[in-house]
Write a protein that binds this DNA or RNA. Structure first.
Lengths: 143, 143
DNA sequence: ACTCCAATTGAAAGTGGAAGTCATAATACG
DNA sequence: CGTATTATGACTTCCACTTTCAATTGGAGT
């Protein structure tokens, strides 16, 4: 998986005539090694710990690149920060966001997707993407 | 409906020991008279047309009050602006957001809601609220 | 009606995160 | 190697709020 991502990004870099740099490698490592759904700030701080000379702007730009390359996906939950999650090829998932501890679980439900498509269809609406988030209290926090 | 909202807000004001001011009345009128899903800026400009002396901060604070009073609901679509929609008592709807013209349609689907509840349940997750948005091209823009 | 005080207002300053600038440094490749 | 590009990082700007603060205003109790 990690190998695959690395490969995809390398190809993307090559295809676009961009350059391979150690910063990009470091940021990619940090991103792939992390839990999903990090904000720019979080990844920046994490990387900064071992590589104090990497700037915020570089992390910011590189994350955008990842999104363009298709290995990351931008997400906005309610906290005013843009978060990035790993984007496995084409897969999509929705989220369960805990309002207590902030944890984010993922789920998929084919039936819901179908119903969404029906709703859209019945209105002549063409879906490009969707977003479904359930906010509440997760299992651990309820104990 | 408008009457009801006005009443609810008046009660809220009273219950909290807040004051009734002409600015709040004007802003409430503007809000209720508007299309749904306005941003702070939009409502501010609209009101400003007839009441040039009302400040942005007042509109901002009043909208927050509306949300607390339960007559408005804060929403975030992808455009970086907080929007407020009328919040009829308890009712909830999901959205179809056109990425071309920015129009926002609403819909409800009981089956989808049930499925969401099932997913949450199966994980011991307690839903407080949810958000479902379908982004794409609306009927008019497809013609 | 008048007072007094807490609530409110509007202008302006402050925030935080995202996006843009630009001089310097690195990389790819002939 | 040498050079044309691209990338980097410190810093600035932008933007959408959010807070501050001095002046004003409701409204409960005279």
């Amino acid at each position: 998986m990690k190998r695959a991502m690395t490969k995809i990004f390398a190809d993307f870099i090559a295809r676009r005539g961009l350059k391979s740099t150690k910063q990009r490698d470091i940021i990619l490592d940090g991103f792939l090694a992390s839990d999903r759904h990090l904000s720019i700030e979080e990844l920046y701080l994490k990387i900064r710990a071992s590589h104090p000379n990497i700037g915020y702007a570089t992390v910011y730009r590189t994350l955008k690149l990842f999104a363009e390359a298709g290995i990351a996906r931008e997400m906005q939950f309610g906290d005013g920060q843009t978060r990035y999650e790993h984007a496995g090829e084409g897969e999509h998932h929705d989220h369960l966001v805990c309002t207590r501890c902030g944890s984010i679980e993922e789920f998929e439900n084919e039936t819901i997707e179908q119903l969404q498509a029906e709703v859209a269809n019945s209105r002549g609406f063409l879906i490009e993407k969707h977003r479904l988030e359930l906010y509440g209290v997760c299992g651990s926090c309820r104990k």
